[in-house]
């Protein structure tokens, strides 16, 4: 039974007056994570917008015990915490319920610089929740391309639009044979919440990636953050699914898309409301580009359908 909005816990880990941009998806995602995990949780953060918005010492905007760590070490730092806790609780040096350990990492710290340590932690099936908030660029340093930036999107290092497709990080993690994996969208907060709770109650390595439209980097009005989150799902640009022990189940609108019950919403609409895709609108071969992007989405959907049927 899915949780309704009114049933969401009232705990707030995001304090008012944090330093993130207006309309920041990361802080909203962290709010929902706080509701799912409750107060008995500890967090690791690598350099990212979330750390930049935390406030300067001695002030902190997030009401969790947070250890800031080196950029490439999210995967191994969280493993260190889990193993140390297991040791201390076994020895009786700590008592009570062991806290939930989770990471809060951008796509830079996940897809790119942090990948090695994450892969190793997943292979060891270390007992924590790796959360990636994917804003499809290195937003904190001023929006440079990342391994998660989609083809055609402009960043400060791809001013004419990125020439390559993004990598499929969730699938890469799924093939580490971890017990739980999920993708999420902020437009569907209760779906995200339920996935976080499921991850909390699953033992082993959990990977959750939440799509995080960044108004500053993607160049759209801050008020459109949820709208664009929703359009990414309905257009098929972002697929909502979860996998328990490798078994894929599609969720929300993605499930209906996969079943062929709804048509994809026009990709043109998704592109046209974001400044990062402005070069497509100006391009002489605009139709061709959109067709290519659409075909890629259709191919991904077909691939995922087959993958889910395993």
């Amino acid at each position: 039974m899915a949780t309704s909005i009114k049933d969401l816990p009232r705990d707030e880990v995001v304090m008012k007056g944090h330093g993130a941009c207006a309309g920041c998806p990361s802080t909203l995602a962290l709010r929902i994570a706080g509701k799912a995990f409750g107060p008995n949780a500890v967090c690791v953060m690598t350099p990212s917008c979330t750390v930049a918005s935390l406030g300067l010492i001695p002030k902190a905007a997030y009401d969790y015990p947070i250890l800031n760590v080196c950029f490439a070490t999210a995967g191994s730092s969280a493993s260190g915490i889990v193993y140390a806790y297991e040791s201390l609780y076994k020895k009786g040096k700590l008592t009570g319920e062991m806290p939930t350990v989770f990471t809060w990492i951008g796509d830079g710290g996940t897809y790119d610089i942090g990948l090695q340590a994450i892969s190793a932690a997943a292979e060891r099936n270390d007992n924590y929740i790796f959360i990636c908030y994917n804003n499809e660029a290195y937003s904190n340093t001023g929006v440079q391309r990342s391994g998660a930036t989609p083809k055609f999107a402009a960043t400060t290092t791809t001013p004419q639009g990125k020439m390559e497709d993004k990598k499929n990080m969730p699938l890469l993690m799924l093939d580490h044979q971890i017990p739980y994996l999920a993708t999420a969208s902020l437009a569907y907060p209760t779906d995200f919440y339920d996935k976080l709770v499921k991850a909390k109650n699953t033992r082993g390595f959990k990977y959750i990636e939440v799509f995080a439209p960044c108004c500053t980097g993607w160049k759209f009005p801050s008020s459109d953050m949820i709208r664009i989150s929703r359009m990414a799902v309905t257009s098929g640009a972002w697929l909502l699914y979860e996998a328990e022990n490798g078994k894929i189940k599609f969720n929300g609108p993605t499930a209906k898309i996969m079943e062929g019950k709804v048509e994809l919403s026009p990709l043109e609409d998704y592109f046209s409301c974001q400044g990062r895709f402005a070069s497509i609108n100006r391009a002489a071969n605009k139709e061709e580009i959109i067709a290519e992007a659409k075909n890629k989405i259709l191919a991904d959907i077909e691939f995922m359908k087959k993958r889910a049927a395993f």
Binding site: V44, L67, V69, C70, A72, T73, G75, S76, S77, A78, S79, G80, I81, Y83, A84, Y85, E86, S87, L88, K90, K91, K93, L94, Q116, A117, S119, A120, R124
Partner: peptide
């Protein structure tokens, strides 16, 4: 009576020690 974390490199080994130390 200790937990041994077999990491994938020394960068991770030290990172894990630092984070583990943060539990006490």
């Amino acid at each position: 009576d200790c937990r041994f974390l077999p990491v994938e490199g020394e960068h991770s080994a030290m990172a894990a020690c630092v984070a583990a130390a943060a539990t006490g």
